[in-house]
Amino acid sequence: MNKEHSLNKKTDYTGSKQGMWMFLFTELLLFTGMFLLYSVFRSRYQQEFHAASSELSRTIGTLNTVILLTSSLTMALSVNAIRKDKNKISLIFQGLTVFFGLFFLANKFFEWSAKIHHGIYPNSPGLLAHGKGETMFYGLYYLMTGIHGLHVLAGIVLLLIMMVLTKKGSLNSDSFVRLENSGLYWHLVDVIWVYLFPVFYLIS
């Protein structure tokens, strides 16, 4: 398969980037469906959304926002480093990005666990007792942060692969489009969080 592939053509840098941007667009549309649900339910249950939002921990939310934004910085720095032939530095920045990603997920884990501990999770008697609006709010909260979390996880796996490739030397200043595309993906996941944070944590 590899032999056949290498025959095809030299790597098309612009083509790869274009394909990646279109893929990111599909990801965005996936989240658009959920944001659509959010806007419908928020306009229907304004009061309840405000009340439910005040029960989320703004501290953890803010902390996670800072973590993800920083991880985007380290991601960009790692691409920058590999362009300048500094593979080791790039590797360190990739590792840092992975670390921030895991840090984010750990926070999310504790946040979710605390809520679940209080009996607030989809279909739980505790949540249903809170009424329709809060059921929708927490439903969306678990759904959207959950799917976002899965995307962070996917990004981490992607970056771990990139680290192996960088170490092997197959990513370098001549061929770094795969790292750049992984970076684009990481930034997208970050941007989605930038929208998730206010719509869940800052509306009370």
């Binding site: 990801e27 549309l29 996936l30 989240f31 658009t32 469906g33 799917i147």
Partner: peptide, 19 residues
Amino acid sequence: PVLGITLLLLMMERLFGFG
């Protein structure tokens, strides 16, 4: 992708009962 999220929601609905 809109179909993707619709079907995902349907699965979630059946598995977890978001409502």
